[in-house]
Design a binder for these strands. Structure first.
Length: 140
DNA sequence: GCCAACGTTGGC
DNA sequence: GCCAACGTTGGC
């Protein structure tokens, strides 16, 4: 069951740039480099304790695990203008069975999620219902 | 590698 | 303030 007291997200990364294994190796990573205003709004809305799916884009095309927000609302260290935001995350759980984009698209309840609708958005919001469904798929 | 979707830029 | 051109992202 999803915890209604927190928000759920999906963060995309290209595994050859920064993948799940890199986050695990670092133990805690800064999620920076976002240069999209919609994604920035999502980043700013994140709270410590929120959970996020970690999605591999371009290669893999699957949700590989869950990360947790450890620090919220920090300035993006890669940004000199001070306009962009970042958060820190840590790996929480790796999925036994990664959930692929294909599976998500084939699931009617998930067909309207931001990941599918706004394919270019690097930080997407996930509803508690969608969260629940995807977690269940990762167990199967 | 191609192309669709979307954001940004710049001329008017 | 509009819109065409261009660049980037990301699925295929």
């Amino acid at each position: 069951m999803p915890d209604m007291s927190k928000n759920y997200w999906l963060m995309k990364s290209e595994p050859f740039k920064y993948g799940w294994d890199d986050l695990v190796a670092e133990e805690e990573g800064v999620w920076d480099g976002v240069r999209n205003h919609s994604a920035k709004l999502n980043l700013k809305a994140m709270k410590v304790g929120d959970e996020a799916f970690f999605y591999h884009s371009r290669e893999g095309l699957e949700i590989v695990g869950i990360a947790e927000i450890t620090v919220e609302g920090i300035p993006d260290p890669t940004d000199e203008t001070g306009k962009w935001a970042a958060v820190k995350i840590k790996p929480k759980r790796k999925f036994d069975h990664p959930v692929t984009l294909k599976q998500i698209k084939a699931t009617p309840e998930l067909a309207n999620c931001e990941l599918v609708r706004l394919s270019r958005l690097s930080v997407a919001k996930i509803t508690p219902q969608e969260w629940d469904i995807i977690c269940a798929m990762a167990e199967a």
